[in-house]
Design a protein around this nucleic acid. Structure first.
Lengths: 109, 109
DNA sequence: AAACTATTTGGTTATTTTGCCAATTAAGAA
DNA sequence: TTCTTAATTGGCAAAATAACCAAATAGTTT
């Protein structure tokens, strides 16, 4: 039996949020923001990329509803809106651990 | 202070796994496989796409270490290797709930 | 107001991802 | 062996993403 429209939309909405996390730089930002708010310039210094690149990554996270921003003076401070995101990293580490464990064993691949 | 190489690799590895989940079809498959193993044909029937498309989505999940496969006779059965992935969906729903809550309020956007 | 700083936006190009079709592989049935 | 079924692989075109540069915006300082 094939998918109905409502369910399709549900998975699309979920995918939007997960896609927003699916980049090394944005994962780093999430990790860093979990320690407290940071201005764009601080985040840029961490990765050494163009300011515009950093800004666009942050807007992806913001549009997904994962972070929020607050402009104070010349600077814009970003902070994590949904800390439960962090719980997920533990599971990702589990996947990675399982991967390396089996990589050199003789189980079916 | 800029990123060191080891940390960069850490976030790249995490991103690989999250990218593997970042597609509506693959999220549906994860959800479905959480209920038990399924053959490729069952999953294809759920989304009504080409067999080759389904197969490629599954290989993305398999390469990331999220699912595993078992060929029995003519069919290949896929199953979820790392169930903790599911805990994450609750958090994704939280993000979505927060998004809709603020979307029509007058808070800063 | 003019100059300066932090950030965002627009535009371009390179890379990656997606989905279909056609061809191939693997297993079972006739 | 030949036929059929289930799944994977290779190839291609369309769509989405990413990174940079340049230009625009918004606040601050002079």
């Amino acid at each position: 039996m094939s998918m109905n429209k409502k369910n399709k939309l549900k998975y699309q909405a979920r995918a939007e949020i997960i896609k927003a996390m699916a980049h090394p730089t944005r994962l780093l930002f999430i990790d860093e923001l979990s320690k407290g708010e940071r201005c764009v310039c601080e985040l840029r210094d961490m990765i050494g990329a163009d300011m515009s690149t950093v800004s666009k990554h942050l807007s992806v996270l913001k549009n997904a509803g994962i972070v929020e921003s607050d402009k104070r003076g010349l600077q814009v401070f970003y902070s994590l809106k949904v800390p439960c995101i962090l719980n997920f990293f533990g599971c990702v580490e589990d996947v990675m651990a399982t991967n390396t464990k089996h990589k050199y064993s003789l189980g079916k691949r």
